[in-house]
Amino acid sequence: MKNIVLFASGNGTNAEEIIRYFKNNSQGTVVAIFTNKSDAKVLDRAKNHEIPAVVFNRIQLNEGFVLQELRNFKPDLIVLAGFLLKFPESILKEFPNVINIHPALLPKYGGKGMYGMNVHQAVLDNKEQETGITIHYVNENYDEGEFIFQKSVNIEDCQSAKEIASKIHILEHRYFPEVIADILNSKN
């Protein structure tokens, strides 16, 4: 069984979908949740599923604390599920199997500051007819790692960024756990 470590900064709906998917799945298990927000709702989700949580700040992320904690959990795959800080190269060197989900069809609407409702509002403002999700490997730059999976959705009927977000959440919850399982299978 492969060890999955999740990083999240907020509500944790994607994290919870991943936890549920792997609850009774022999491919992998979520062994820890890391967050940079002591009040993040993802901590409640971790507690409800009896998964250890590690809370850290930006300095601890970049100066070795998080790397040391990761070593304790021996992750086969690190999954950024709504994690908003730039992932340090020092961690990527030791743990190169890090993936992220982005709420748009990269390379459009990626980069620093492009997350959550910022992305959806930009998509709406530019009158896009479709958007989607991109799951990609993480490298030293925001949203520039190798693409693993993309799925689009028509948004011509959406009148607000919130409506777009709803359609994106459906895609994220459906496909993110499946793509993680595929990655774990390919690493056997």
Rank of each mutant, 00 (worst) to 15 (best):
F83N: 03
L85P: 03
V79Q: 07
H49G: 00
K151T: 03
V54H: 01
F83Y: 15
G12R: 04
S26Y: 06
A8L: 02
V79H: 03
N97V: 07
R71E: 15
V123M: 07
Q150K: 15
F147L: 09
S166E: 15
E17F: 10
K74V: 08
K162T: 13
I168T: 07
E144W: 00
A15I: 00
K187R: 14
S152C: 04
I33L: 15
E146W: 00
S26V: 07
S160K: 12
M114T: 08
D143T: 03
N185M: 11
A53H: 12
K162D: 14
L124P: 02
V123Q: 05
Y137A: 06
I148C: 07
N3T: 09
K74P: 00
F176M: 13
A32K: 01
I148K: 02
N100Y: 08
D143Q: 04
G145N: 09
D125N: 15
V42W: 02
I99C: 11
P103V: 10
A81T: 05
N57Y: 03
G10I: 08
F22D: 01
N25C: 10
I155D: 01
E146N: 14
F176L: 15
G110A: 05
G64R: 10
H120S: 09
N14G: 09
I183S: 00
I59M: 08
N97W: 05
K112S: 12
T131K: 07
H173E: 11
S152H: 04
R71T: 14
T13V: 09
N118H: 15
R174S: 10
A161F: 10
Q68H: 12
P177T: 09
N100R: 10
Y137S: 05
